[in-house]
């Protein structure tokens, strides 16, 4: 019996050394030698400081930048908590959003939901829409739209708010990615955002669109995957070519 069992222990320890230590360390050494940039995370440095990774998305909220997709990684684009929303197609939370009461007993947004994202995407980018209730009714004292009120209106069972864009919204622009770190947006989403970015920077829409076209990656080998725009690289190019004063 022992002759069948003891080799199990010995081979396990041997494998741990060869495959668990030597193999990954050798691979690390070779990778650092041949592909140092990729092996260390394709980091981008500006003025001596690391400002991000080429292939990891980061948040952009200002109007003069192209915006990435919604993210479910931590509180948004947190690479220590990669995750999708894991909400299914019939989830009310996904479609209409949810609110919650915080420590100070204020009602705040718990999950924004796709309906609210559609509203913001339309307003930010000047997409025409129809709304069953004028959006002015959802403004707070400072004149901004109140997300909590909107989410409650979408969740109203008797007379829910119906908000219909008059142009199709690219699906990727208002849905969360799988990793929560998606560095890309679709070219369609970038083209829609170009007008807003151009206005905020005082440049022509053509200039913004030319930059989008330059930063649109075609499918790998002309065939694999989808055309896509790397948000961070595009925004860095914007800052370089059309700096804001």
């Amino acid at each position: 019996m022992w002759e069948q069992i003891l080799p199990g222990l010995r081979i396990k320890i041997f494998m741990t050394i060869v495959l668990g230590v030597v193999y990954p360390l050798a691979m690390t050494g070779i990778s650092q030698l041949i592909f140092p940039k990729q092996a260390n995370g394709s980091l981008i440095t500006q003025n001596g400081k690391v400002i991000g990774s080429e292939i990891i998305g980061q948040s952009f909220t200002k109007p003069e930048y192209f915006h990435p997709r919604p993210s479910s990684a931590g509180s948004g684009y947190d690479p220590t908590a990669s995750s999708g929303s894991n909400l299914g197609p019939t989830s009310a939370k996904l479609v209409r959003g949810t609110t919650k009461t915080d420590d100070k007993k204020n009602e705040v947004v718990d999950y924004d939901g796709i309906s609210l994202r559609v509203v913001h995407f339309c307003l930010e980018n000047g997409i025409p829409y129809e709304s069953s209730v004028p959006l002015d009714r959802f403004k707070n004292a400072t004149g901004d739209l109140d997300d909590v009120k909107l989410i409650k209106a979408f969740n109203d069972d008797k007379a829910p708010l119906v908000f219909t864009p008059k142009a199709s919204i690219p699906a990727d622009a208002v849905t969360a990615s799988s990793s929560g770190l998606d560095p890309h947006i679709s070219p369609a989403s970038a083209q829609i955002q170009a007008a807003r970015v151009a206005k905020a920077r005082g440049i022509s829409v053509d200039q913004a669109n030319q930059l989008v076209a330059r930063f649109t990656d075609n499918p790998d080998l002309g065939l694999l995957g989808e055309p896509r725009v790397n948000v961070l690289k595009l925004n860095l190019a914007l800052d370089q070519q059309f700096p804001r004063k």
Partner: peptide, 27 residues
């Protein structure tokens, strides 16, 4: 349900359409 709220489902040359919740743009 999402198409009713204005999301594009047909694929075009500039975006993949369909159910993009939980999917990456590059794929």
């Amino acid at each position: 349900i999402l198409a009713n709220r204005g999301l594009q489902t047909a694929a075009t040359s500039g975006q993949s359409g369909g159910n993009m919740e939980g999917k990456e743009v590059r794929f």
